[in-house]
Design a protein around this nucleic acid. Structure first.
Lengths: 147, 147
DNA sequence: GGAAAATATCTGTTGACACAACTATTGTTG
DNA sequence: CAACAATAGTTGTGTCAACAGATATTTTCC
């Protein structure tokens, strides 16, 4: 009986992980479709959203990296690309000259605003498969995983 | 009240997606750590697992692609790499010469066997944060999303 | 105050991914 | 049965990601 339980739990664990991966892939694809017409990818959008959520003073490179959902080891060149797109600007901190802060340009702020509607629509669309109760459960259950 | 509800749901939808992404990232990272000592990545392992789950006759390239969890547009070169590792073999179907089947080599089968323990351990480790009931709920809720 | 450690970022390089165009083979249809 | 469409894979090309090592600046500790 103990063995049976264990076998069952094993199967469930596998199934849980597989389903988690599959659904994430689905939602991730949907997000990238929303972003594509704007010339953005998920990691790029991630940075913009992080910078949009704070004040006008910007954030140091590593701080951006640590706040990202998708772990990216090379934030420098991700920001290089955003800079090439004209969406962020860089400035070296005068107090501690090791630090480089990135902040949104006007163009970056505008694109975030323009994304607001489509992103909201996307979020509601993909979560519409769940009732509010299920959505709450999902969040609660996923919150049990350690950061 | 309707507006309030709506705003709340919006926030929940955002939170649900963010948490989903974050947890997947965590688990995905854990999986890749298990695979790394074996010279594998998640997509590579994914292919091996798919080929291991069927008989000895192998599967056509596109069929492998459609069964993968992570959507990969370029299965050909993924299999190229697995072939270079000596883990899969290719053979052109004599009946329909458009089709190329990939199948596990002995080395590929062996590495899957060697992975069996570590992968099981990994799965149980990451799902140990949940009770069986929560794990069941998670699977049930995630199953509501369309394929 | 100067050497060593720590911090913050950048660069080089290699391999992997993404999108599109291309080839080869088979199926369909007038 | 010839032409066109459909199917199955492959290849070309540019971009991106991953890992390691290098650089610049500040902090720490004798």
């Amino acid at each position: 009986m103990n063995r049976k339980q264990n076998t069952q739990t094993k199967g469930l664990a596998r199934q849980g992980i597989t389903t988690l991966f599959r659904v994430r892939e689905q939602v991730y694809g949907g997000l990238n479709e929303v972003l594509k017409p704007f010339g953005l990818t998920e990691p790029k959008y991630n940075v913009l959203r992080i910078l949009g959520g704070i004040g006008n003073e910007g954030l140091p490179t590593l701080e951006i990296g640590s706040r990202m959902i998708t772990r990216i080891p090379d934030v420098t060149r991700l920001i290089d690309r955003l800079k090439a797109d004209g969406l962020v600007a860089r400035e070296r901190c005068p107090v501690d000259r090791r630090i480089v802060r990135a902040k949104l340009t006007t163009k970056g702020k505008k694109i975030l605003q323009k994304l607001d509607g489509p992103i909201n629509k996307f979020q509601l669309k993909y979560m519409s498969f769940l009732t509010d109760k299920e959505l709450n459960s999902l969040i609660m259950i996923l919150a049990k995983f350690p950061k």
